[in-house]
Write a protein that binds this DNA or RNA. Sequence first.
DNA 1: AAGTTGTTTTTTATAAGTAATATGCAACCC
DNA 2: GGGTTGCATATTACTTATAAAAAACAACTT
Lengths: 297, 297
Amino acid sequence: MKPDSVFKKAFNRTLQLIEAGDVDIGATSENALRARIGVSRTTVRKVLSELDARGITQASGNGPRAGRPILKSDYFPDLETTSKRQHVEEQFMEWMLRGDTQPGSLINELQLARQFGVATNGVREFLIRFSRFGLIEKKQNSGWLFKGFTEEFALELFEIRVMFELRSAVLFAELPDDSPLWTELAELKTAHQQLLLEIGRRFHDFSRLDNRLHRLINRAAPNRFIDDFYDVITLIFHYHYQWNKKDELQRNEAAIGEHLAYIDALFSGDTHEIERTCLRHMTSARTTLVRSLQGAA
Amino acid sequence: MKPDSVFKKAFNRTLQLIEAGDVDIGATSENALRARIGVSRTTVRKVLSELDARGITQASGNGPRAGRPILKSDYFPDLETTSKRQHVEEQFMEWMLRGDTQPGSLINELQLARQFGVATNGVREFLIRFSRFGLIEKKQNSGWLFKGFTEEFALELFEIRVMFELRSAVLFAELPDDSPLWTELAELKTAHQQLLLEIGRRFHDFSRLDNRLHRLINRAAPNRFIDDFYDVITLIFHYHYQWNKKDELQRNEAAIGEHLAYIDALFSGDTHEIERTCLRHMTSARTTLVRSLQGAA
DNA sequence: AAGTTGTTTTTTATAAGTAATATGCAACCC
DNA sequence: GGGTTGCATATTACTTATAAAAAACAACTT
């Protein structure tokens, strides 16, 4: 059976929109709401009838009207608004990064399925998807080999990352002056400077900026394989730093400085300088990752 | 229900070994045979009892002895010796490369499942696995987008391939003189020369040599992401050239020449020359692929 | 006729079930 | 005691089933 997490998420989202005064249910067509929330009309209708059933809106001859106010308890709990797939991912990453599973050990689909409370199929699909991250490997007619989130992994990851980043940075610098990407880069620069001022209490926000910068640079000359690889990096960093908070403020502060130098180099168009600042940032990011891996082991 | 293709393949393999006089069933332990065929002992035992049931061997007090000779009809048909997974792959690739599915169209799991005669799950697992090849993309809560086996795809693929190959070639040249990889390279050179002499009737064998050469070069400094990427290339070429035979002899003859120049450059250790010959080969391979894609469209 | 809602059909995300295969353990043998 | 076979258990590679969600179609409304 399929869970109704899509519906529940859409329902919560709709409540938010109503509360923010962003939509007037009576005046909005199903299709307009559908486009807004990003689900099918079938789901929108289910949301609307649930709103009605709860008295939040009231159906009448000419469309629904506002009913009772929305309560905090009307929202579905977060847990019910995410798909099983998402749960499996989260639980697996936690299992891998926090558990003490040794590199070289075998992963058992059935066992994970029981542990995560899902059918084996879900675990298997996740593992297939996850296998492209280079951390696990399928053994024919048997389980999966866990290769380990090791220093070696980090080094191989960064070797590729550096190649891709240098390539994209140089291409970025060659963009015509009127490319809209330059504007975006300028905005990002401002955002970095802003964050630096408030670093004390907003240092968590750095990872989002980091992602934006590197993805922006890749957009200079899109290549699907580089994009895919960046997905790997994003996921690894997302989960890894979630469990490695040591020196986060200082690390991020230093990284912002590196980013700013890198951005300036891009604006300057000086290839040599771009390579220098890019490499400096890559090297320090690698050092951070490797160090935290050593700490864990 | 699980198909018994593993058993059937193992059975066929065992028949081969017996016919070739490579194993004497009476004198070989289950475990030895297991290691030889690469399956579990459970499967080996099933093979042995089937041999017995058919009278090919005869169980007696002290182990089985030879019974009747093996007939051609004892072998299971090839179709039954490969997993569903393999079938899905083959059928999908044929569907994609031969069919007239337009780039941008949606792939339907259920429809493919019916067409291929498997459960939807199998198709879905295949598509997840296949998605890393950059030809399809999942749409949340909906089907898969077929991006198309286009010229653009080929160019993006080769951009990465060139980066990786140049990187590995340079590292290969830096290997110490006593590395066993040099011996392997020398052997490959001989194989190339040999093939060139018999090119008229053995030109199909080139693709295997091609694969061996590029994988050998990557082994100088292994990186799992590069290895994975090479899997992409291998699969693409394997299926693509299966349906593009035009000028195959001439193309392969030219490619052997390029390989030989490349190999010599590696032996010379001259970085500049390595880059030149490597690029020449990459460029011509890319041209071949792009041209055949244009022909198809 | 374009946009709306009501209804039916198709497809997806998940679970449950099953024979084949792999794995692990016990008993045997020399 | 290392290697053998016999047997029991666990895991995988599938198939079938089902409610949720998407898509397609039809009827209505301006």
